[in-house]
Design a protein around this nucleic acid. Structure first.
Lengths: 220, 220
DNA sequence: CTCATTTCGTTGGATATACAACATATTCGT
DNA sequence: ACGAATATGTTGTATATCCAACGAAATGAG
């Protein structure tokens, strides 16, 4: 177990908790570690899960089979990130997605009940653990809400303006960088890349904004 | 305080906690109650909040001013429902939305730090409180993810099929009712109502589904 | 029952989008 | 510096969407 302690320090769940405390907590939480080859299922559609997964090494995909039978990657979790927390927190819901390793990986599983039910020993750090978990869920929530707002705009131009002005606001500046290239931005806004590229140039020609690669400037 | 105990029983946060315990917990949590007239701001854009609001009576809107200056209602919280929990759980983020009363309302405020940091007295019930909060966040997460999946389809037909097949799957039946009328479904999928209505009929004529009001049946 | 209101389906025209195909620009390894 | 690979911009066309307007059907109140 000890060789993973260093890994568990810089992650979403144990951040802010002292190293020696983590070791004690892992026992208390009855943490289990499992190894996987590439492209192995960790959780399958339809299962009812009660554990959060923490990626110790490697990375995993959260995938969904749509109504046409296509499998798409919804998100990825790398070292230090967690997965399954949403379904683990709602016992009534069975998985509508699956988790597959993107490469050979090691995963630590933590029972959600043990996370939620505070043990007597290290209450201060346990509170931090809970705070971290709440924080992960809340941040995902914020990101989903933001994305949804942009996507609910009807035209590509409106989607772009909605996204870019929100980013400007978040950065407290009319000049800012975005974490996407054109294709990724198009996927994020659920539009065609070439059409979006076209619309970006129209916005530039209309004097509404200017850009260079992934750096944007909103006018006025 | 006592006259609100009955109200706090059937709500998202205190569900599953015994009445007498709630009273003790409210003191321990330092719960504050405030009254509002109609159309009053409870939380404003830009604020940094540290409390979760619980609607005791009345109802509140979560509103957002978009880049065009329009104010839109993103969601509503009625009696027993909470608001602000997402931002309260992420101290680094300031409000990108505002909360306004939809009618004269009473709201109980609970400090998020006190919710997260377990007090010594009633650990069992406190764990339940935390479980409830996690559950609220996780469920919102699930709903946002589902909506996002449908909205990211490119055509109205695909959006409809994505939504309807997901609903069939969730209900474990090809026959099911949806909680929307046509306008609400169109808003949910971010498409035009008349175009959607048209597409629904095409799907019916193509033999893919049939419907009567808000009751649907998927074929095959 | 009747009338008013809301919901739902239908149509046509202006506009926007997706898609494919290609041109240009940038990045990266050697 | 060079070419290969990738990213970005541009264009045309078929298709889909939005929007407005309207009629039919369902709902609800009196």
């Amino acid at each position: 177990m000890k060789n993973f302690i260093n890994l568990t320090k810089n992650n979403q769940l144990f951040s802010g908790i002292e190293e020696k405390e983590i070791e004690a907590m892992l026992k208390c939480l009855n943490a289990k570690i499992k190894s996987y080859d590439k492209n192995q299922y960790i959780y399958r559609f339809g299962e009812n899960i009660s554990s959060v997964g923490l990626v110790l090494c490697g990375s995993v995909y959260l995938v969904k089979d749509d109504f046409l039978g296509n499998q798409t990657i919804l998100s990825e979790a790398g070292v230090g990130q967690i997965f399954g927390e949403t379904y683990a927190c709602v016992p009534a819901e069975t998985l509508e997605v699956s988790i597959i390793t993107a490469e050979a990986s090691e995963v630590m599983f933590l029972d959600i009940q043990r996370i939620m039910n505070v043990c007597s020993s290290t209450c201060v750090f346990h509170a931090r653990l809970i705070r971290n978990l709440l924080s992960v869920l809340a941040e995902k929530n914020l990101n989903l809400t933001r994305k949804m707002l942009h996507m609910s705009q009807r035209t590509t131009r409106e989607k772009l303006l909605s996204y870019l002005s929100a980013e400007a606001q978040r950065n407290c500046s009319t000049v800012f960088k975005i974490p996407f290239n054109r294709q990724q931005l198009a996927d994020y806004l659920a539009v065609d890349r070439s059409a979006m590229s076209n619309e970006l140039c129209k916005l530039r020609d209309d004097g509404i904004l200017s850009f260079n690669k992934n750096c944007f400037k909103l006018n006025e």
